[in-house]
């Protein structure tokens, strides 16, 4: 595995799927605007033209269409890369409601394989079988990116934090090892609890992990405490991707990016925007304060 050099600025996907932490009305307006994949591609193309090559996205069903477009035009999108964030929990939630936990898992396993059989037996699963199921689920999420560049693969924050809270961090280790072994790329983790996660990952033997978390000047949604975040960043033990750098609009852009640029340990910023003006504005600020990757 080669250590991935992450770009300074990554493009996020919340705005495409009706996720807005400030207003349901805005969220709905965005859901309407991005109903068609063309509208998503238009925005991605603006970002790509600005030199923002990385799209950090949930493994939402609709990303399949984006992946198809990129795959269909390899010349144009030669430098385009995805950072998948998995799982997209909704599809599992629905399957669990429809089929129950075991039924849902069986539904996703290869029908003639040993795992499906193990789940049918109604007996306790061996550790190896649990690992096997996890790997099948990861592979399933990755299918839509077949043939595309995915140099970093993330676990979504609700899933990371659920496992972290329960103390089931071995599952994060399974993810880590599978991503390294099978895909030869960097495993990474999104969390709302960076200091706690970092400690837990280190206990699992994962050194200098890539962690994406809220990092902003006003400490918005930095659970575990602002100071603990800064300590972790300064310690050199984490490669951070900062999200919510504007704290949902509470911090003026220039001030927000300037502050981030002076933090050690922050390798990248992920942001979402729907207008060309906002995309160019953030790109210009990142170029001004952060320059090229170290």
């Amino acid at each position: 595995m080669t250590m991935a050099q992450m770009d300074r600025l990554l493009f996020g996907d919340n705005q495409f799927f009706g996720i807005n932490h400030m207003s349901e009305e805005k969220a709905r307006a965005q859901a309407m605007r991005f109903q068609k994949t063309d509208a998503i591609m238009e925005v991605l193309d603006v970002a790509y033209a600005e030199g923002i090559r990385t799209f950090m996205c949930t493994t939402h069903d609709r990303i399949t269409e984006v992946a198809d477009r990129v795959r269909a035009d390899p010349v144009r999108y030669a430098d385009f890369r995805f950072y998948p964030c998995m799982p997209y929990a909704h599809k599992y939630a629905n399957a669990v409601t429809d089929h129950g936990m075991v039924g849902a898992l069986r539904h996703f396993m290869p029908s003639d394989g040993v795992l499906s059989t193990a789940l049918t037996g109604g007996r306790a699963l061996a550790t190896k079988e649990v690992d096997g199921i996890a790997k099948v689920l990861i592979d399933m999420e990755m299918k839509m990116f077949h043939g595309l560049q995915t140099p970093v693969i993330f676990v979504q924050n609700v899933f990371t934090d659920l496992l972290l809270g329960m103390g089931f961090t071995r599952a994060l280790r399974i993810f880590h090892d599978h991503v390294v072994t099978k895909y030869g790329v960097e495993p990474a983790f999104i969390t709302m609890n960076m200091p706690m996660l970092l400690e837990a990952l280190e206990k699992e033997g994962i050194e200098r992990p890539i962690i994406c978390a809220n990092i902003n000047k006003i400490g918005f949604r930095m659970s575990g405490g602002f100071d603990a975040y800064l300590d972790a960043l300064r310690s050199g033990r984490v490669r951070a991707v900062a999200m919510s750098v504007y704290a949902s609009g509470a911090i003026p852009p220039d001030e927000a990016i300037h502050w981030i640029s002076e933090l050690p340990g922050v390798e990248s910023i992920v942001f979402g925007a729907s207008s060309a003006g906002n995309i160019r504005g953030t790109k210009a600020l990142v170029d001004k304060y952060m320059g090229a990757p170290a």
Partner: peptide
Amino acid sequence: KYTTELTEDPWFYLRGEEYS
């Protein structure tokens, strides 16, 4: 007023401050 400005960070965030 937005919830983001009306809410304090919990010790542990899973799915919304209110649950914690």
